[in-house]
Write a protein that binds this DNA or RNA. Structure first.
Length: 525
RNA sequence: GUCCCCAUCGUCUAGAGGCCUAGGACACCAGGUUUUCAUCCUGGCGACACCGGUUCGAAUCCGGUUGGGGACGCCA
């Protein structure tokens, strides 16, 4: 069988980190199994769907390397097929139009099938009974059953459900007398549209049936039919509803495996009936656990950095994000974490996906990003950091060759591109200074004196090398009675304005004699 | 409210009844290297939610409790 999976986002906003994780898993599954990865844009909600959202989606997917097979499938372009499918169901009695009171046209409603005896996805789950509130009459018609259920505490809640879940239904009063038997009336209900209203009902006794499917990730999942309702598939205004469109398009695209977020589990029970009604084999399902934010809560609009585009602009590498996201809810089963795309594809199976939700950890992503940066091709690293510096607006007058040398010195300690702003001191005399560090390390008179000595020594020296720099510093330390090495940090701050960076000797050498001396002078005054 | 799902270090995870004194990674802490901060290296801290049951033996199987999450639209 040719495996065909799809990623089917609705373009109603930015691409969310959870959505793209779904896309990654879909893509991984397709690539691992040698199947097709299809993209379907579910733009039936015309009012909320925008071209801008589609563009961002495509851009994000491209950035992450999620290439899709075949043409993009736009759901809106298949609307006629959806309506036709509904019309056919109407003809064959699988769907109906309810009577509506107002002037608005009636929607088309799909009826959960009554006859499920030969349905391989429905099974009998024993007998069930529900306690009902006698003061609310039970209403039965072809569009379903309505009653008031009484819970253990005696609280009454009104419920309605499809008739499909109430085979062998008997309605009993408080004395146990049978008031109604569904098997006797079912013919009339469906063929003559008979309806009933039964007062004084105390108990519903029926054979419970449930719809069941085997989820590759979550295992066997089932839902009793008596908890399900018939569903609207075409609105009163004639437009198809998500459920219908989704299923029709899966049929159209010949989807074999539906891998999506687990917020769709409940929909699956209904979609299975829809696939059967259309006459298409039910696909294999896999429901992915969700990703929650750092507070452990589901992502919402408030989580500003939950958009894929934000990760890009903050300087995360696509491979690092991809690698990190693939590890959220999945692992190869051994201790590997940093893996190439090929390794991930080879190791990826849905059976290894966890069914519990995973919390996003910026720290770990940052660490992984740093690993990817450290092992980047140096030339590419120079290109990318240069681009970043350019967008930060400070490349004017900067010598590119010198910039490349600085990049070489700094590459192994970078975690994010925007950190290039901390390289400015190499190129300009105007740069930000860490005020706290300055006051902490450069307030002691002994230190200031020592810096002056170093300044004088370096100015007088003809050479300016790692060795000569180090020698000058050691001499100044011993002359001022400062412990060896204790001048390094004050010097770093005096010369770079920062408390962290590469080795101070290398940094000074890279900076050059002239700039180094000039900066030391401003502190030794 | 009803139905459904989930539960191992702070976080991501390994773990399919004995290889578990529960392994790895991030974070954190300490030491080493860099006569320096960071990087890097080594080490440490740190979890089977709880209660019962099955079993010679349970993180693993079963039941319950608690906690978290999801679904209940003429949204997708």
């Amino acid at each position: 069988m040719d495996i065909r999976v799809r990623f089917a986002p609705s373009p109603t906003g930015h691409v969310h980190i959870g959505n793209i994780r779904t896309a990654i898993f879909d893509w991984l599954y397709a690539r691992h199994s040698g199947g097709k990865f299809l993209l379907r844009v579910e733009d039936t909600d015309r009012e909320r769907s925008t071209q801008a959202a589609i563009d961002t989606l495509l851009e994000c997917m491209k950035w992450l390397g999620l290439d899709y097979d075949e043409e993009i499938f736009y759901q809106s372009k298949n609307a006629q097929a959806h309506v036709d499918a509904a019309a056919k169901m109407l003809e064959t009695g699988k769907a109906y139009r309810p009577k509506v009171a107002g002037p608005e046209p009636a929607p088309v409603i799909f009826r959960l099938p009554w006859d499920t005896d030969s349905n391989p996805d429905v099974r009998i789950a024993g007998n069930a009974e529900l306690i009902t509130d006698p003061s609310v009459p039970v209403k039965i018609s072809s569009s379903g059953i309505h009653f008031a259920q009484l819970n253990e505490k005696g609280k009454s809640t009104e419920r309605s459900a499809s008739l499909a879940g109430f085979h062998q239904l008997k309605i009993l009063d408080a004395a146990g007398t049978c008031l109604f038997e569904i098997e006797k009336e079912i013919g009339n209900i469906f063929s003559k549209d008979a309806s009933f209203e039964i007062a004084n009902s105390a108990k519903l006794v029926f054979q419970r049936r449930e719809i069941v499917f085997k989820d590759i990730i979550k295992g066997e999942l089932a839902k009793p039919l008596d908890g399900m309702k018939d569903l609207v598939i075409v609105r009163g205004d004639g437009t198809p509803v998500f459920h219908l469109a989704n299923v029709c398009d899966d049929v159209e695209q010949k989807i074999t495996h539906i891998i999506r977020g687990d917020d769709h589990v409940e929909n699956t029970y209904r979609h299975i009936f829809l696939f059967q009604a259309i006459g298409f084999p039910v696909p294999i399902y896999g429901h992915l656990p969700m990703i929650v934010n750092q507070a452990g809560k589901p992502y919402s609009k408030r989580d500003g950095d939950a958009y894929v585009g934000d990760f890009r602009s903050k300087g995360y590498l696509p491979d690092a994000l991809f690698n990190y996201l693939s590890l959220l809810g999945w692992s190869p089963g051994d201790d590997r974490e940093k893996m190439t795309r090929k390794e991930i594809i080879d190791a990826f199976t849905l059976e290894r996906v966890k069914s519990s939700s995973a919390q996003f950890d910026m720290n770990k992503l940052g660490n992984m990003n740093g690993q990817y940066m450290a092992e980047m091709d140096p030339a590419k690293f120079v290109d990318e950091t240069w681009k970043e510096a350019e967008s930060q607006g400070w490349t004017a007058g900067v010598d590119r060759a010198y910039f490349a040398k600085v990049a070489g010195l700094m590459q192994s300690r970078m975690k994010l591109y925007p950190q290039v702003s901390s390289w400015k001191f190499f190129f300009f005399d105007e740069y930000e200074k860490d005020g706290k560090a300055v006051s902490k390390f450069l307030s002691d008179k002994k230190v200031i004196d020592a810096i002056k000595q170093i300044h004088d020594k370096l100015s007088a020296d003809s050479e300016f090398t790692l060795d000569s720099i180090q020698k000058s510093i050691r001499e100044a330390e011993s002359l001022s009675g400062i412990q060896e090495g204790k001048l390094n940090q004050p010097l770093r701050i005096a010369v770079t304005g920062l408390s962290t960076g590469a080795g101070i000797y290398e940094t000074m050498e890279m900076l050059g004699k002239e700039k180094t001396i000039r900066r030391l002078k401003s502190f030794s005054a």
